[in-house]
Design a protein around this nucleic acid. Structure first.
Lengths: 181, 181
DNA sequence: GTCTATAATAGGATAGAC
DNA sequence: GTCTATCCTATTATAGAC
């Protein structure tokens, strides 16, 4: 099995259980690999597995959600691309956010640097497209930050309520709110 | 030590570590009680401890943040009361949200009912004050939900970035955004 | 590369003395 | 009520055969 496939299966476990809640037993079951095989792929153990998952997610996020924000075209169109990518990534609000879940417990300390970088890149990319839309830099940054806040918060609320509707509602109004006068 | 004091100390551990990350060793250390003493207070073990923590937080949230929303007075003033309470509860963004962290991992299944009730009550109380301010019911509900989303999301982002500023910025603009035309 | 077996430790929980 | 001591299981991780 290609390493990327392994990482994608590990991702589902960290996404659903968080860093502390993800056990090697479940990681093994999700990949179909024995524990020792996992250590062959990731000598650093669980920490390295989670690191690979975060790196993989960052790559996905960049290619499918952030890079489209930097492409030529109308800002509204570019933002719509990101929204569609997020809708797929989070399965319309049924999936939790790996980054958001990593903030909890031991993951927070271990991956502080990566989390900072991931959230920072996200905000940067959004601020840029809003600046392209003619918004003053400070407003663009504040709204970009607010968008990430809302996405993460909507996934938390969807998880807490046990229904994805808050996230779906958010995605629907997000492009308008970002570009409103 | 009064039970309430014990629960408050347990709360700090679940808040910082999440449900899966909170170990009996740390819960014991935080309270200054041996494991057996904890089981004297909470025969149901860790699950009962976390349940007591959630109940305690709900009580605090109601008394300090939600009940003021229902009091007579100008909506803007009432909302300001809630904001001040949240600022204290989350230490200006330095503390995580117990409810938000409980959504991750095993806590999500175990406390689904409680989480649903907590978030629901919060949204209800906010929607009510916005309706009092003259907003149509649907708009009041959507904005109330959005406020909870933003609060939870801002705490996640603050945790991920390692700095409380996103939360502080959010609290500052929240009253205006809720009551805007 | 993947497996079985096993170590070593940490986890949640209980018994029983005081 | 609180402690010490202990139990059992799950957990992370490694060794070594194939």
């Amino acid at each position: 099995m290609p390493r990327e496939e392994v990482v994608e299966r590990l991702l589902t476990v960290f996404r659903d259980r968080g860093y502390d809640g993800a056990s090697l037993a479940e990681l093994s079951e999700a990949t179909g690999l024995g524990k020792s095989s996992l250590y062959h792929y990731f000598p650093g153990g669980k920490e390295e597995m989670a690191g690979a998952v975060i790196a993989h997610l960052n790559e996905w996020l960049w290619v499918h959600a952030l890079e489209p924000l930097t492409q030529p075209g109308a800002p509204a169109r570019r933002i719509q691309r990101m929204v569609e990518a997020l809708d797929e990534c989070y399965a319309g609000g049924k999936n939790a956010c790996v980054l958001g879940n990593m903030v909890v417990g031991a993951g927070r300390q271990i991956f502080q640097r990566e989390l900072r970088k991931s959230f920072g890149a996200w905000i940067d990319a959004l601020a840029k497209v809003l600046a392209d839309a003619g918004q003053p830099p400070k407003q663009a940054r504040e709204r970009a930050e607010d968008a990430v806040i809302r996405i993460e918060g909507a996934l938390i609320l969807a998880g807490g309520l046990g229904e994805p509707t808050p996230f779906r509602r958010l995605l629907k109004r997000l492009p308008h709110d970002l570009l409103a006068d």
